[in-house]
Simulated assay, not measured.
Amino acid sequence: MMKKETVKMKMREIVELSFFVPSLKEAVLTSIEEHAKRSAFLFGRLAGVHYQMFSENIKETERIAAAV
C-alpha cells in the first residue's frame, strides 16, 4: 500500500499546480498539513490500491489517492 507521505506530497503538488491565489493556496496547504497530523489518509490509500487492482493505468494511482 502506498505511504501516507506519498499521498500528502501528491496533494501538495496538485495544490501547487492548481491554485493561483496565494492566500488561498497557503490556506489549503496549511489544511493539508493539519489534516496529515490527525489522519493516515487510509481511505485515499485504499482507493489507490483498488485503482491499481482494477485499472491498467497505474501512473494515475497517486493522483487518485490524493483526490480521495
Rank of each mutant, 00 (worst) to 15 (best):
K3S: 00
K3T: 03
K4W: 09
K4L: 11
K4H: 13
E5W: 08
V7F: 01
V7P: 02
K8L: 13
M11Y: 08
M11S: 03
M11Q: 04
V15Q: 10
L17P: 03
L17Y: 04
S18N: 06
S18V: 00
F19R: 09
F19I: 12
F20E: 11
P22L: 11
L24H: 15
L24A: 02
K25T: 08
V28T: 00
T30Y: 07
T30K: 04
T30Q: 05
E33Q: 12
E33I: 03
A36H: 12
A36G: 08
A36N: 12
K37R: 14
K37E: 01
S39C: 05
A40I: 05
L42C: 10
L42A: 13
F43A: 13
R45D: 07
R45M: 08
L46M: 10
A47M: 11
H50L: 15
H50M: 06
Y51Q: 03
Y51D: 03
M53L: 13
M53V: 00
F54W: 02
S55K: 05
S55P: 00
S55N: 02
E56P: 09
E56K: 15
E56V: 14
N57L: 13
N57Q: 13
N57D: 15
K59N: 14
R63P: 04
R63M: 04
I64P: 06
A65N: 02
A66N: 00
V68M: 13
V68R: 09
